[in-house]
Write a protein that binds this DNA or RNA. Structure first.
Length: 337
DNA sequence: AACACAAGCAACCGCCACCTC
DNA sequence: AGAGGTGGCGGTTGCTTGTGT
């Protein structure tokens, strides 16, 4: 029969969130930090399921979320990570801290998948590729996977090396973070800025010194961030895209992958760990740490293989120079963009 | 101007993994 | 050790908005 629903369905409101609900939720989380979602509806009086509250927070109310159009750089990262990780949107989102997994998933489903399909169709016209066939034999599947990995690797290096030249070295901040938020549609639900303004106005109009002292003195997004970082540091159940990772990961991502494009060695991998580990979340470790645990879950094995393939290929393949050089025209994303 | 269709996106659903007792 | 509770994740749905006829 399955588990009972997470909350009593009777009397639970569904559908789009109202500004009032958002304000209630945001103010509650400001006081208590994210987590213990089950208690949120009862403590706030919101007629919402705990899951709905969590989702609303993580996808729209959480500070630091960028909405609106995806940049080319972001597109590339998504494409490459999708090729490597599959539809593991949360993992992909951990490398784009300003984007939510839901956003990335939607963007993939509505934009990128179509684009890639179109391009793959073009590729198939000019090659003997059998990628359209749905039933691969095992060997075919493995070959296909390796090809995909190779292409993704190529494209990834391509993207990051190209983008490096696009950004001033004087600005060490990741291009992702450096980009200004793009205001999305004008509807309420899609505008985090509106929520921020609403919250500010609300706090002006109805101050609650005992409850919102921090917000009274510093009612900005960044201060909001700081408050919530405290919560994240205290063992709350933040997703990988939340908390401290948001300030550091993109840079780490760039350096990791640009490094990886230039020299894949076990030593470098060790450096990656040393440099990045303080900020690594589980997904980052999962991706970049040399396998050490013997009791890894099965789902991790393929990625370990990916890592090894990437490393081995980079070390051994003479074609690597070509890969790093101008021979990018064959790469998927080179055609893609 | 009105209708039909397509696209985009916010939100929901159900499964799974982890944690606590 | 295992059962139950909770949060996280990915797939999917359905409403809203945009575009074409």
């Amino acid at each position: 029969m399955g588990r009972p629903p997470c909350c009593d369905k009777i009397g639970v409101k569904k559908g789009p969130w109202t500004p009032e609900e958002d304000i209630i939720l945001v103010s509650y989380i400001q006081q208590h930090g994210p987590g213990n979602w089950r208690a949120v509806p009862s403590n706030t009086g919101l007629l919402r399921c705990s899951k709905s509250c969590r989702l609303r927070w993580t996808n729209y109310l959480r500070p630091g979320i960028k909405r609106g159009n995806f940049t080319e750089h972001e597109e590339k990262i998504i494409i490459h990570l999708q090729a490597l990780l599959g539809n593991r949107w949360a993992a992909i989102a951990s490398y784009l801290p300003e984007r939510t997994d839901n956003d990335i998933k939607n963007y993939w489903n509505t934009h990128l998948r179509k684009k890639l399909k179109k391009l793959q169709g073009n590729d198939e016209n000019s090659t003997t590729s059998s990628s359209s066939q749905s039933d691969f034999s095992k060997g075919q599947w493995e070959r296909r996977l390796q090809t995909d990995i190779h292409m993704a690797k190529k494209a990834l290096c391509d993207a990051l090396s190209l983008d490096k030249s696009d950004h001033s070295p004087a600005n060490p901040i990741s291009p992702i973070l450096a980009q200004q938020p793009v205001q999305g549609s004008s509807s309420y639900a899609s505008s985090a800025e509106n929520i921020s303004k609403l919250l500010q106005n609300w706090m002006k109009n109805s101050p609650k010194p005992s409850q919102l002292s921090r917000a009274d003195s510093e009612n900005t997004q960044s201060s909001f961030n700081n408050n919530l970082s405290i919560g994240s540091g205290s063992g709350s159940s933040l997703s990988p895209s939340e908390g401290t990772i948001s300030a550091t990961t993109p840079e780490g991502f760039d350096s990791l992958f640009s490094e990886s494009c230039n020299a894949f060695t076990p030593e470098n991998n060790a450096i990656f760990q040393v440099e990045s580990k303080p900020n690594l979340n589980a997904e980052n470790e999962f991706l970049f740490q040399v396998e050490s645990k013997s009791s890894l879950e099965e789902s991790q094995v393929p990625l370990t293989l990916l890592e090894k393939w990437l490393f081995d290929d980079a070390i051994n393949a003479p074609a690597q120079e070509e890969l790093m050089g101008i021979g990018m025209g064959l790469g998927l994303s080179a055609n893609f963009f």
